[in-house]
Design a protein around this nucleic acid. Structure first.
Lengths: 345, 345
DNA sequence: TTGAAAGCGCTAACAG
DNA sequence: CTGTTAGCGCTTTCAA
């Protein structure tokens, strides 16, 4: 039972409530005598007082709460984490926030009423949004006046801070790697390719790499669906149905690769013997997989950390200064690619 | 900018603030004329009013917030989700909570100050705790007077509601299955075996099954560490070091199995040819794995849903009534087990 | 260096 | 059926 309030502490310490507040907040404007401070702390200790953060944010207009919005992959589907990427990211966010004395208000996407209310409701100090959202929802949020960090979105609006990775370059790197291994026909497998989305950029990088090598991107080599294991299976089926035309695939997420590999294996097609794969993300799955996945590594932990830091900085800053942060990528070589020579065809 | 308050709405609608409050809360004690209600709703709409939940919970003592406590596997380690089980569970919790108009306050374990403060701070309406915690921390929470649901804990204290699975029976089922396939020497691989923890129960179930079959549990067949991929690798090394004495293993988590299988493969030992495995959880990993894992399936989604429902029910109830919920398990046969005959030895 | 007082935005008796 | 009033627990001028 939360019974003890600041008044109780004040009484116990023989001071006023405001004094207690000063002590607890290390108020910079007011200075408190060491003696008083000690008495107050003693009272706090004795009564086991814990400030009520709701009341605090009501009067101070700071909540020490960060709202986190994670996409619900499929509308109506309850599973937020069909991609372990989100779990890893959320972990990093939670940890960093906690280190800074912030708590997390977690929410999946609310199709009906939008997230804006949730956030306003609770007076969050900032919002971290993962993934791509319809522009309207974002506009709603924009008007809230709290810092917003977009993770992995290419929405360009100075109202938002963004944190992302070199998607295009990463895709280029992956594709070029495959080409370097002798592959001439390379599939592109991804979630939906949307404007402002990461898959669009990755698709561009993929095309760039092909063209650089004098190859022509082929419509029939594109597989696009949702970012989950199931679609990986589906893509495998499609790949087989279309006649196994490519000797390699660049797949934009490790979960997708998992499904793809599995789907192929069910039909007796082997990775990397029959088809080589370079994947993307390097979530822990990539290593667990068999064969372990050669993949474009991104620093998910850093992404989460940065996201929180951006929020915190922005909350401090007097005027809004748009910040953009791009994290580097690197290719991790594992076992899902093999050299392809003319003679293999 | 959250500028519009209940007063603004009241003014706009030409009524008092309390009337607005009544309308918005569908207050059962007060009845409002259809006319007034309409005017208020119109004003709300027009001004884009969203109630401030902090203020609301300050006066009503209900926050519509559920605290969720997820274990940080290793102290100091920032990764909350080294086991996808947590991600799946959290998804279900979040989704269910949202359907009921609740939000989630997410926190990893705070070694230093305990979670009690976090919860009290924010005045959560209930707390869902996943995993096993030191008794002292729980006692602190107990005194808070909000419903608490323990997920997967065998702490027996009427102050808490619990939701779990038939751990012992599940382990027995798994082990018996292996025995049925002709295995006489079966390893037990798990996270730390702690009092009140699930692994203790599973260990018991494992032993029971052995004894039922006239076999004797063997100290040397026990591998116990942390519930993550890395320990799976380690266990594999240990298994090999100890001379590959068992022809099968019951492993208490799919992530662990992933590591174990991988660790074995690195040394050229194959599943199920050289050793059979029955795992536990049936997270999505189990299916992705190669070979896909024969595992004890638990309904993680249901676990999350029930946890939220228990909180909600308890919050409604006038007097505390201890509730306990045990979910059933079933074995899912996949590809990680093979029949073992005498001649194979 | 401290305290009094006002108020953050909302709810909940209690009147009327 | 609706308004008045008094807080919820805290912060924050302003004065002393």
């Amino acid at each position: 039972m939360q019974r003890v309030s600041i008044k109780d502490v004040a009484k116990e310490a023989g001071v006023s409530a405001s004094t207690v507040s000063y002590v607890l907040n290390n108020s910079p404007t007011e200075s408190i005598s060491a003696e008083t401070r000690k008495r107050v702390m003693a009272a706090v200790q004795k009564l086991g007082y814990v400030p009520n953060l709701n009341a605090r944010s009501l009067s101070s207009r700071r909540s020490n709460l960060i709202g986190v919005l994670i996409p619900q992959t499929e509308p109506g589907k309850e599973f937020m984490f069909s991609n372990p990427f989100y779990g890893e990211l959320l972990s990093a966010i939670e940890y960093t926030a906690r280190q800074h004395g912030y708590h997390l208000l977690l929410s999946g996407t609310q199709e009906d009423q939008g997230y804006a209310n949730v956030a306003r409701n609770r007076g969050v100090d900032g919002i971290i949004i993962v993934g791509t959202y319809p522009g309207e929802s974002l506009n709603e949020l924009k008007r809230m006046g709290v810092p917003i960090v977009l993770v992995d979105s290419y929405v360009t609006d100075d109202a938002f801070h963004t944190i992302g990775i070199e998607d295009k370059e990463g895709a280029r790197m992956a594709t070029r790697y495959l080409i370097g291994k002798g592959h001439q026909s390379i599939a592109f497998i991804s979630g939906s390719i949307r404007e402002n989305g990461v898959n669009m950029k990755r698709y561009q990088g993929y095309c760039d790499a092909l063209r650089e090598a004098g190859l022509t991107p082929d419509e029939g080599a594109i597989y696009s669906g949702t970012v989950d294991y199931e679609y990986g299976l589906t893509a495998a089926r499609q790949y087989l149905d279309r006649g196994r035309r490519q000797t390699a695939a660049f797949i934009t997420a490790d979960v997708l690769s998992m499904g793809f590999v599995k789907g192929l294996r069910q039909q007796g097609v082997c990775v990397p013997e029959d088809i080589s794969i370079v994947s993307f993300d390097d979530v822990y799955l990539a290593n667990m997989a068999y064969p372990s996945l050669t993949t474009v590594h991104q620093d998910i932990g850093e992404k989460g950390r940065k996201a929180v830091e951006l929020i915190l900085e922005a909350a401090q800053a007097k005027e809004h200064r748009h910040t953009e942060c791009i994290l580097p990528l690197r290719l991790v070589e594992r076992d899902s690619v093999r050299e392809w020579r003319k003679s293999d065809d």
